[in-house]
Design a protein around this nucleic acid. Structure first.
Length: 627
DNA sequence: GTTCTTAAAA
């Protein structure tokens, strides 16, 4: 009698101390506490089981320890307790054993809202959003009333499945049932759900009305704007967060922001984040690898290869991502040899490449016109590293051949591929067919690409340009008419340049700029000089069968020329380097013109097109005139 | 005593 009561008392105090320690995340002490209790020969009671499961979970103890507890619980008949069984349901979910969780769930006779919620969130965490939603509706059918935690769980599933309708009805339900009243977690779940379902307007609405926001809220908001490509809003929100809330952003958010900068060639914001990362207080106790790698990638993608390289060289413990980032950085700048060199240096450090390293490497070879090296690396990848080539590797090899003019070999390679070639592969072959004016193969490639997607405007544009370059004007017109019938429009050309911290955007035949007159005048003069000096002969012309005057009038309207003229007039450029961006591939005439300007104005020009960078210097471009 | 939202570099 007395022994019983001592036992009950000690188990009661054991449980409450254990819970307190768990709450304050004192895991080591909590474990000690448990060990001491066991050393007294005492066994955990029914109330201790959920806490013990949580402790082992937080300590990352292996499944078998927890299964011991499971057998122990079964032996003692503890499983009839819904708190205990819910704990085990959760445990199996956390190891991905969905079937075990489901089985346990089925055994439980009376199910409460917490158990149902554990099911909904368990499925959702295991990527089974559809089952999460199924169980949620089943729960409603059985008359169990969801609470705010259930709703947050089902919203996570909605985000995953991108089903805005269900999310909206959950919203309505929560308002009608008064479950909504300023709960940060639930509101954040709504912000995230609307954003992931593509409705940033609703997401922003909920966000704006929130009284309290936590770091998860800001994260959901900022990364969703980044992922939906709203660069301005992304940075506005970031500033708001930093200024008003004094919240330190963590690595994933910084990486997202840097990715935005790389994608939009936004060096200015990129440098700001760099400064922010440098003075961040986390420097002390973390290796900041994600930030460092993301910075290298940002500088390379935003066109400042120098900064990328110098950061790269200062990273002490380069990991696989660091190396791959640098290899890919060299690649987009057309520096194939440097990419291969970096790869060899990486091998010396004992870092093993993976499939992505080879994608970066092979694409660097194709842009650097290193055919033999590329093919050799492709063999080495399979032989030495046992990496099975995938579609992206195939695409690189096709490109390595085709970009160098080995169109037949590219075609033969495609025919031998073990999988069905993708739309992208055909389109890239077509692009090289255009460069080398191979109409026959180009037509075949276009046909194959269009079989995937009849509405791929890019393919029609390439095909029509191929016809135009080959002087087949009837075919050219046919393709353009076909495009019109299908309601397709070629992408409007745009170039942009930053002068005095402001971005200027130019479209074809832009007359809106107050400097227009001056710009056209300057272009005329420059082009005249270029012809006089015989520089124009460096390019191969023949884009259009129009008169020479018409042609030059037209060429002056090319957006990259306008951007260049604008910078020259405004005296822009950063440390002798002019950076211009373009949303389409640079045309041959503009390419020659840029080379010429880099020579007579003695400046470096870095021009970004959708695929790579061109570095113009002293009358040359590092792409060696093939791109 | 059990159930809840977010997130990353090639």
């Amino acid at each position: 009698m007395l022994a019983q009561s001592i036992k009950r008392n000690s188990s009661y105090s054991f449980n409450s101390i254990l819970r307190t320690l768990l709450k304050s995340v004192n895991l080591e002490k909590a474990l000690d506490h448990f060990v001491q209790y066991r050393e007294q020969g005492l066994l955990p009671d029914i109330y201790a089981i959920p806490s013990l499961l949580k402790l082992l979970h937080d300590l990352h103890h292996p499944l078998r320890y927890r299964e011991n507890i499971h057998s122990f619980a079964i032996k003692n008949g503890y499983l009839k307790d819904i708190f205990v069984s819910t704990g085990f349901v959760e445990m199996y979910f956390s190891f991905g054993y969905v079937a075990s969780s489901r089985h346990l769930f089925d055994e439980i006779p009376t199910k409460d809202v917490v158990l149902w919620t554990a099911m909904v969130s368990g499925f959702s965490h295991n990527g089974l959003g559809d089952l999460a939603v199924d169980f949620f509706s089943q729960m409603l059918r059985e008359g169990v009333k969801p609470n705010r935690i259930t709703l947050a769980s089902v919203l996570a599933a909605c985000s995953q499945l991108k089903v805005p309708n269900l999310g909206r009805s959950v919203h309505g339900f929560s308002i009608r049932n008064g479950i909504f009243s300023s709960d940060v977690v639930l509101e954040t779940a709504f912000v995230d759900m609307y954003a992931k379902c593509g409705n940033l307007t609703y997401s922003t609405k909920v966000f704006d009305q929130m009284r309290d926001r936590n770091s998860v809220t800001w994260n959901a908001m900022i990364t969703s704007h980044a992922n939906n490509r709203f660069p301005e809003a992304t940075f506005r929100l970031f500033r708001e967060m930093v200024c008003e809330n004094l919240r330190e952003p963590e690595s994933p958010m910084l990486a997202s922001l840097l990715q935005v900068c790389g994608g939009t060639s936004d060096l200015r914001h990129g440098r700001e984040i760099h400064a922010y990362v440098t003075r961040s207080s986390r420097n002390m106790n973390s290796d900041m690898m994600v930030e460092k790698n993301a910075l290298i990638d940002m500088y390379a993608k935003a066109g400042d290869l120098k900064s990328a390289v110098s950061l790269f060289e200062n990273v002490k413990n380069k990991n696989l991502v660091t190396w791959t980032t640098m290899i890919s950085g060299y690649g987009v700048h057309g520096l194939g040899a440097e990419a291969v060199e970096a790869f060899n240096a990486m091998k010396k450090t004992g870092t093993t490449p993976d499939g992505i390293t080879f994608i970066a490497l092979l694409s660097a070879c194709s842009h650097g016109r290193l055919v033999d090296e590329g093919l050799e690396l492709y063999i080495s990848m399979q032989r030495d590293y046992k990496i099975e080539p995938e579609m992206k590797h195939f695409a690189c090899i096709v490109d390595i051949y085709a970009r160098s003019g080995l169109l037949d070999q590219a075609f033969r390679f495609i025919k031998k591929m073990p999988v069905e070639p993708s739309e992208f592969i055909w389109a890239s072959l077509l692009s090289s067919c255009r460069t080398y004016k191979n109409v026959d193969l180009g037509e075949q490639a276009a046909k194959k690409a269009l079989a995937f997607n009849q509405y791929n405007a890019g393919v029609y544009v390439l095909l029509s340009q191929l016809y135009a370059d080959s002087g087949q004007w009837e075919d050219f017109s046919k393709v353009r008419l076909l495009m019109k019938d299908l309601g397709l429009k070629p992408t409007t050309a745009q170039s942009w340049v930053e002068v005095e911290r402001k971005m200027y955007i130019f479209t074809v035949r832009d007359n809106l700029n107050p400097y227009s007159e001056k710009m056209y005048k300057l272009l005329e003069t420059l082009i005249e000089t270029m012809h006089k000096e015989g520089f124009a002969a460096y390019g191969s012309f023949g884009c259009h069968d129009i008169t020479k005057e018409e042609k030059e009038g037209n060429l002056c309207g090319h957006t990259e020329k306008l951007a260049l003229a604008f910078v020259l007039i405004k005296g822009g450029g950063h440390q002798g380097v002019i950076r211009i961006g373009k949303n389409l591939r640079v045309c041959k005439d503009c390419h020659v013109f840029f080379k010429f300007v880099s020579k007579i104005k003695d400046c470096d020009i870095i021009l970004k097109d959708p695929n790579r960078y061109h570095h113009f210097k002293q009358g040359n471009c590092n792409c060696r005139d093939l791109w």
